[in-house]
Amino acid sequence: MCTSLTYTNTANQHFFARTMDFPTTTPWRPIFLPRQYRWTTGLNETRQTTQAILGGGRQPIGIDNFLMADGLNESGISCAELYLPHAVKYAPTAQPDKINLTPQDFINWVLGEHTSLESVCAGLSQVCLVNQTWHGEPYVYPFHWVLSDTTGRNLVIEPTGGPLTAQLNPSGVLTNTPILATHFKNLTQLLGQASVTINQATQVAAKNWLATKQPLPTGSIPTNRFNHMAIRRLGTPTLTAEQTLPTLFAWLNEVRLPYDPAKRHQLNHNYTHYRSVIDLDHACYYFRPRTTERLQTIQLTPEMCDHWRVPHVFPAN
């Protein structure tokens, strides 16, 4: 039940921001994965990274591998997973002559093995997402993914059948189900547009919405969170460099899902574990956990990429 957006400010700096909303799990933490890191897919095949990765992830109890929910690599591309229930179609079994991955493996493949979004897109036809659990975890998760880079592009990959493809997302926003095209339809209808295309008229309508102080859609429903964030992003005057980070965290806070201690043992209690912002131009990962709200600032430095040889798990708080 996550919400995400990409953003370019007046200084032409590029950002990716998201809430990580998920039922109770092992703690999510900032994690570094080095170059030449050998990891095992959920199908027990070994792959090796060529790019260092920094992002938000977790290491489930009893599993030697790291599950990444978002991150950036040393070439300045980002990737994040969000839920797409009732819409995904995975292959029932591994396919010959394909790069067979479980859904949880996909971010490692994107960020660990590519230096540009063009190279990711070129390799998508070779990827087969298989309907199999990841290292014995209880569920096969229905994901779609959002990718961005230092050009400001926002690409969305939705595994809804057939070969994987990436579609350009002019709204710059992604949440959960429904598929992106339906989100566009819902947003443009809300804003009173005849067209379902996200364009300059959408931006004007979003600006008018905010100028007239109409209340933004609220609640946990993905459609409402998508419309809320899209109106914020499209309707707000472009932020300066100084405004960007605090404003993005403020926007994420508007759509966060509350934690209820009384429901902490319920498997379906979905809440915001952390909010993160990635500065793609400066390879900086900002991580704010629910538990302490302490902002961690971690930069993926050349020294880390060149000399750190093993994964590193940063404190959650």
Rank of each mutant, 00 (worst) to 15 (best):
P315V: 10
R35S: 08
I298W: 06
R294F: 13
P237M: 08
F184D: 06
R38D: 13
G136V: 09
Y139A: 15
R288M: 15
Y274F: 15
T151L: 10
A91D: 09
G57I: 03
T40A: 09
I99M: 07
L43E: 06
A211P: 08
A205I: 02
N108I: 03
V120T: 05
T238L: 08
A250C: 12
T182G: 00
T202R: 03
R309A: 15
A241Y: 09
A166S: 08
D281G: 10
A205W: 05
Q51I: 11
Y83D: 02
L216F: 10
H273I: 11
L191C: 02
Y90N: 03
A69R: 04
P163N: 13
C284M: 12
P258E: 09
H307N: 15
T151N: 11
A262V: 12
P170L: 06
H144R: 05
Q48Y: 06
C284L: 13
S125E: 14
N224Y: 05
A166C: 13
E293M: 11
G172Y: 03
E137W: 04
W308E: 14
A201D: 01
V204G: 00
W308R: 11
M1C: 12
N186G: 05
A201Q: 07
E81S: 15
L33N: 06
M20E: 07
N169T: 03
N317S: 14
V127H: 04
T197M: 09
G42L: 01
V196A: 14
T150M: 12
Q200I: 09
A201R: 04
N186R: 08
Q104E: 15
Q200L: 13
C128F: 10
G161R: 03
F314S: 10
R232N: 07
N100V: 01
E137A: 00
A194D: 13
Q59K: 13
W39I: 04
P302K: 02
R294Q: 15
A91N: 08
L67Q: 10
L111V: 04
A80N: 06
L280E: 01
T115L: 03
L248F: 08
Y83P: 01
Y285I: 07
M1F: 12
T6M: 05
L187S: 01
A201I: 00
T93K: 11
R29Y: 00
I278G: 00
A17E: 06
T102G: 04
C305M: 09
T160W: 03
N227A: 09
P60N: 07
I179S: 08
A230Q: 03
D279W: 04
Y259C: 07
Q13A: 14
Y285L: 07
I63W: 01
Y274V: 09
L164V: 00
N268C: 11
L234K: 02
T24Y: 12
L190A: 05
A94W: 00
L174Y: 01
Q126D: 11
A206Y: 02
S116C: 06
D97G: 07
T244F: 04
R275C: 12
T151F: 08
A241M: 01
R35Q: 13
N224E: 09
F143P: 02
T182Y: 01
R29G: 00
T236G: 05
P258D: 11
P92S: 14
P315N: 14
L252N: 05
L72Q: 05
Q189L: 15
T247D: 12
P178V: 08
K213H: 11
W251K: 09
M20T: 04
S171L: 00
H307K: 15
T6Q: 02
G57L: 01
